[in-house]
């Protein structure tokens, strides 16, 4: 089912969690969704750090917007893959599935699934062009993200 930018505007805000990188390290992820271009686009800022916040494993900035034909794509910049244009693949409500190739022909796949209220399941993988035979079920970055909720004192 084709989606609109408005379908994702309820995600606006900061989401965070601890998960695993594709290479198997633990990673702390923070992603910020912001409405852009007068609210007709969804801007995303994604950071995956080591859990001590010393090394930025991967940073991505992206803008999800409609082409004149109406299809949604994401314009992006990745600290690993450089400039990107990813296609939004049709999927169910509450799913943002993006895929495409980098300029170095690495294939990327990024998916956010809202599988419960206040929870986004993030999954991503990339494989290099010379490993095109690698199965899609290979290792991937995964993380359950929750809205960054302010601390409040415990109630008695």
């Amino acid at each position: 089912m084709s989606r609109r930018v408005a379908d994702y505007l309820s995600w606006v805000g900061v989401w965070a969690g601890v998960g695993d990188t594709q290479a198997g390290q633990q990673t702390a992820i923070r992603t910020d969704f912001v409405a852009g271009l007068d609210g007709t686009s969804l801007q995303m800022h994604f950071e995956a750090w080591d859990t001590e916040f010393k090394t930025l494993y991967h940073g991505v900035r992206a803008v999800l917007a409609p082409a004149p034909s109406g299809v949604l794509r994401a314009l992006g910049y990745s600290t690993i893959h450089g400039p990107l244009i990813l296609e939004l693949t049709p999927d169910d409500e509450g799913v943002m599935a993006l895929a495409g190739d980098s300029r170095a022909n690495n294939h990327l796949s990024v998916t956010f699934v809202q599988d419960a209220p206040g929870e986004l399941l993030f999954t991503a993988f990339w494989r290099s062009a010379d490993k095109s035979a690698q199965a899609e079920d290979g290792p991937r970055m995964t993380c359950r993200l929750k809205p960054a909720t302010p601390w409040s004192p415990p109630r008695a």
């Binding site: 007709t40 803008v63 004149p68 794509r73 314009l75 910049y77 400039p83 244009i85 300029r103």
Partner: peptide
């Protein structure tokens, strides 16, 4: 009109600008 883009450098040091404009669509 509305649009967004990213400037970055390729290996030769040339600017690569992937862009989105609502009336043009996506391009590199």
């Amino acid at each position: 009109t509305r649009g967004s883009g990213f400037f970055s450098l390729d290996r030769q040091g040339r600017v690569v600008n992937n862009i989105y404009a609502d009336y043009l669509g996506f391009a590199v």
